[in-house]
Simulated scan of single mutants.
Amino acid sequence: MKIDAHHHLWDLTAVNYPWLMEKGTVRFFGDPSSIQRDYLLPEFRADAKAMGFGASVHIQVGAADPWAEAQWVQSVADQFPDWPLVQVAFCDLTADNLDEQLDHLQTLPSVRGVRQIIGRAPGEDASTGTNALLKDPAFLAGLKQLGTRGLSFDLQLLPELMDQAADVLAQAPETRIALCHAGSPHDRTPQGLQRWADELTALSSQQQVYCKLSGLGMFDHNWSTASVAPIVSNCLSQFGAERCMFGSNFPVDSLTSTYKDVVSRHQELIPSLNQEHVFHGTSKRFYRI
Rank of each mutant, 00 (worst) to 15 (best):
N97Y: 13
R120Y: 12
W83V: 00
R195A: 15
A166R: 09
S204A: 14
L255Q: 04
A95Q: 13
Q101C: 14
A202K: 11
W19K: 08
Q194G: 10
F286R: 01
K260C: 11
L102E: 04
Y287Q: 01
G119R: 02
F28K: 04
N234I: 02
S257C: 13
T13C: 11
V168G: 11
D92P: 13
G129I: 09
D92T: 15
A166I: 11
L269I: 00
F250W: 12
A89F: 10
Q208F: 09
H221A: 06
H58R: 05
P18G: 08
Q36D: 08
Q36S: 05
F153G: 06
A68W: 06
Q60W: 00
K135R: 14
S127C: 11
A89G: 08
P66I: 12
V61K: 01
H186F: 15
K2R: 13
L108I: 10
A178K: 07
R243C: 08
P32E: 08
Q206K: 07
A170M: 09
I289A: 05
A132Y: 10
S283W: 00
R115P: 02
N97P: 08
L213Y: 00
V114I: 15
A95N: 13
Q171G: 10
E124A: 12
E242C: 14
T282L: 09
D78N: 14
I231D: 01
S264W: 15
M21P: 06
L140Q: 15
V73Q: 03
A77N: 08
Q206F: 11
V262L: 15
R112W: 01
Q191Y: 07
V168T: 13
P159W: 03
C244W: 03
S248H: 03
K49I: 02
S272L: 13
D65S: 11
I177C: 06
I231C: 03
C244Y: 03
T258R: 04
Y210H: 15
S127W: 11
G62I: 02
V88R: 04
D4N: 02
A68L: 09
N234A: 10
H186Q: 10
M1E: 10
V232D: 06
H280L: 13
H266I: 01
D198T: 15
A48C: 02
D65E: 11
V114F: 06
W67C: 03
G52M: 08
V209H: 01
A141F: 09
A121Q: 12
C180N: 15
P185F: 00
S257V: 03
F44E: 02
Q171V: 13
A172L: 11
S110P: 09
H186S: 10
T25E: 03
G119K: 02
Q267P: 00
S127N: 15
E268M: 13
M21R: 10
I270D: 01
S227M: 05
C244K: 07
Q74A: 04
A48H: 00
W10H: 02
V15D: 02
C235R: 06
D4K: 01
D99Q: 15
L105Q: 02
L41I: 03
T128A: 11
R188W: 07
Q60I: 00
D96M: 13
H181Y: 04
T258Q: 03
S110H: 08
L108M: 11
F53S: 01
I117H: 00
D38Q: 10
Q71H: 15
T256P: 04
Q106V: 14
V15Y: 05
L85T: 05
L155T: 02
A170C: 09
V57W: 02
L98E: 11
